[in-house]
């Protein structure tokens, strides 16, 4: 189901903090993908997906960029490493953070109309 939700609305609605590419939040989110395995995201995520993960390593930016993801939300209070932020700025990938764990964040995104692959 193609939802029309934009990143800005999610940032506001769920009180996410933006850590990179805050000028690029007008992007529309096509769905959600939750995973902490880079290979899984590479293989199975869809362009425009919003990626939920615990991983903070700069490789996440490479994956997001390669798969043309809408953005990354780091959960459970994780902060991106400095070179992750730098790389994300360079590649224009929005990284957001939240204290919520994956289950709860996804639950609330789902409530806002963002779904995952079935």
């Amino acid at each position: 189901m193609g939802s029309q939700v934009k990143l800005t609305e999610l940032v506001r609605g769920l009180k996410l903090s933006v850590r990179s590419a805050d000028g690029d939040l007008e992007r529309e989110v096509t769905g959600g993908y939750a995973s902490d395995l880079l290979s899984d995201v590479l293989a199975n995520s869809e362009p425009g997906n919003l990626w939920i993960t615990l991983q903070i390593h700069k490789n996440i930016v490479a994956v997001a960029s390669m798969k043309d993801l809408a953005g990354i939300i780091l959960v459970n209070g994780r902060e991106p490493e400095q070179d992750t932020i730098e790389k994300a700025e360079a590649e224009n990938i929005a990284i957001m953070v939240t204290e919520m764990p994956t289950f709860e964040l996804v639950g609330r995104l789902y409530g806002l109309g963002i779904t995952g692959t079935k």
Binding site: G31, A34, S35, V106, G107, G116
Partner: peptide
Amino acid sequence: PLSMFESCGRLYRDGVVSCF
């Protein structure tokens, strides 16, 4: 067969809460 996102979303919708 569902993805992690879809699974979490559905269970949360139906009242399961986070165990973290």
